[in-house]
Simulated scan of single mutants.
Amino acid sequence: MIEVAISPEEGWSGPTDWQALADRAVATALRHSPYAELLDADALVEVSVRFTDDDEVQGLNGSYRAKDRPTNVLSFPMVQPDLLPGLANTDDGEILLGDIVLASGVCEREAAERGVPVETHATHLIVHGTLHLLGLDHLDEATGDAMEAVERAALAAIGIDDPYAVEDD
């Protein structure tokens, strides 16, 4: 069972059901990742998603990545990548994958630049963040291509166009 705990805050308003959006994005990312078996795990698999403002994300980005600027999404994995293949070894019935934090202003600006609804871009960022929690990364071209392939498949499964497609003018 997957549990997504969210805490909507500043800048994330309107009629959107952010809980449903986060639930779907996390489950979709898991389903298309190398760890899809987590969807059927006996353990409770938990991901925390925080919707907040640019200032909070800038503070976190400065503290944890030494980058004094807001970014669209930050991921804080709680499971060491070498433990992921054997996650059945949980002793308390819970697997805390980690935290994902999204910045409202950055997300809104990027969505506008891409010509997509904020909800679509936020879904992409949560899928991206979930994959980071699972140990996928984009530190070089090969790992970046592999991660993007998983993202594309996950997003396509829920009807979201390829966010990495390059438009020809």
Rank of each mutant, 00 (worst) to 15 (best):
P15E: 12
I95Y: 09
P8C: 15
I100W: 06
A157N: 05
L44F: 01
H138L: 01
V166N: 04
G59A: 13
L83A: 15
A66K: 10
V47E: 10
A122R: 03
P34C: 05
V49C: 02
L134N: 07
E37F: 11
L134H: 05
A149G: 11
L131Q: 01
P81A: 04
T90F: 05
L84I: 01
A156V: 06
Y64H: 15
I6K: 06
R69S: 14
V106R: 15
V118M: 11
G14A: 08
K67H: 12
A153L: 03
D169H: 09
D91N: 12
W18Y: 15
W18G: 00
H138V: 01
L155C: 09
A103D: 13
V49H: 07
A43G: 06
S33Y: 00
P77Y: 07
D145I: 05
A66R: 14
A157E: 14
A29G: 07
A43S: 14
D53V: 06
A88V: 10
E151F: 09
A146E: 15
I160Q: 03
D54C: 12
R65T: 00
G11I: 00
E56D: 11
A29N: 02
D17G: 01
G105L: 02
A27E: 08
A154K: 10
A156W: 07
L131E: 01
D145V: 07
Y164G: 02
V106D: 06
I6H: 05
E151L: 04
V150F: 04
V166A: 12
L60F: 07
A165N: 09
D23G: 05
M1E: 10
D99N: 12
P81E: 03
G59Q: 15
P34K: 11
L38S: 04
D162I: 08
W12N: 04
G135H: 09
D68E: 10
L139G: 15
T120V: 15
E10S: 12
L83T: 11
R109T: 13
L30Q: 02
